[in-house]
Nucleic acid binder design. Structure first.
Lengths: 202, 202
DNA sequence: TCTTGATTTGACCATCTGGTCAAACTCACG
DNA sequence: CGTGAGTTTGACCAGATGGTCAAATCAAGA
């Protein structure tokens, strides 16, 4: 496939269909558990046709992960040092919870990768992710120094937010097995709000 | 292999070696990502020899999961209605955190299974797990009714404990990518302790 | 319309993988 | 020892899977 020319109408459509199908399949079965045939079928293409757009299974996976990393980190990016600390953090948590609800496939894609040792995104973690987290924990530390929120280990505060919010997407089956018909997010939202309000109040 | 007779010395040794090797491999690569050859090699056996002890890859996985489920739920089982609420809950959290630290392979084994929709343990979730959680949330609700701990959604309280504690085992790579040399559990322990103390104080 | 590059496909291949089997070997016990 | 049950293995198989390729089909601009 010509890489240098501007993408044609068909290229755009098929590339998008492949990535969407791949997101379905990779997030549900992990990298190894996904098959190219399955992705191709879900995208409405034959396997050789799919491999006309991406050189390999690995390439699809990589394209997905790097394409979604920004989306995934956007909520933290928006945490604003100028805003009110409690409002900023609660809004961040709110956004993360919404992402869990609205983009569960993305959450599980990353979860699959991380739980297996992140063989394909190890670098992004130690570089991009670490840099962003360092930047934002510095803000949290400032707020703590100023006595505007309770003093806590800022890294673990971030971890707790990730753990709590992504749990609902990543372990959805377990949550639903226990809650039955109840909508997980209806209870989760006030719960995490209360939790962090209590935790962060100095 | 003779199933009915009492297991010989060799059977005990090899079955144990296989299950240990399988725990390594399944927890690191998921069911589909694990190969029988890999498990056999790690157990120090040839593939046909391994299949002399377990009829199939699936059987090893099932044996592992059901054998470990009790271990995994033991900390919650120990939550005692007669004890002091705050102490009981904090002790439960402590036990869960220790399990994350000491049995990360087991945590990741379950995480792998859950994130992919728990195709092989769906029943255990809706039966055993749900029953246990229902029993223990009833205790939590009583404590809340008596005003001994803050009123919260009891299911989400449990979820939050699972999420927070298992996060350190399941997403170990991510945690370490951010913390660098710092021991995750050194910071995690006081953090979760503070968190739940603040959250549960009425 | 015609041409050329873009797109699609059927047939094919090499490798991996779960699993089988008969034959060989080893161990415990009378 | 000897013997029968328990254990191990090399050779093998069928199906799945990632990937290739030449040929056929299609789309759009000149």
């Amino acid at each position: 496939m010509p890489e240098d020319r501007a993408p044609t109408r068909i290229q755009k459509k098929n590339r998008a269909a492949i990535l969407d199908a791949a997101l379905n399949v990779f997030s549900a079965h992990g990298f190894r558990g996904a098959t190219v045939d399955q992705i191709a079928a879900e995208a409405g293409l034959s396997k050789p046709n799919l491999l006309y757009y991406f050189p390999s299974k690995e390439a699809i996976h990589t394209a997905l992960l790097s394409g979604l990393l920004d989306t995934w980190l956007a909520p933290l990016h928006d945490l604003d040092a100028q805003g009110d600390p409690m409002e900023e953090i609660l809004a961040y948590i709110q956004r993360k919870l919404e992402m869990s609800r609205d983009l569960p496939r993305e959450s599980r894609l990353f979860a699959n990768e991380l739980v297996q040792g992140a063989p394909r995104i190890h670098d992004s973690l130690s570089n991009d992710l670490k840099a962003l987290v360092d930047e934002k924990t510095a803000i949290l530390s400032d707020w703590m120094d100023q006595g505007r929120i309770a003093r806590l280990h800022p890294y673990h505060l971030i971890f707790s937010i990730w753990a709590l919010t992504q749990h609902y997407a990543d372990f959805d089956v377990q949550v639903r097995a226990i809650l039955g018909d109840e909508d997980p997010y209806e209870g989760a939202e006030p719960f995490v709000d209360t939790l962090y309000r209590k935790l962060l109040t100095p």
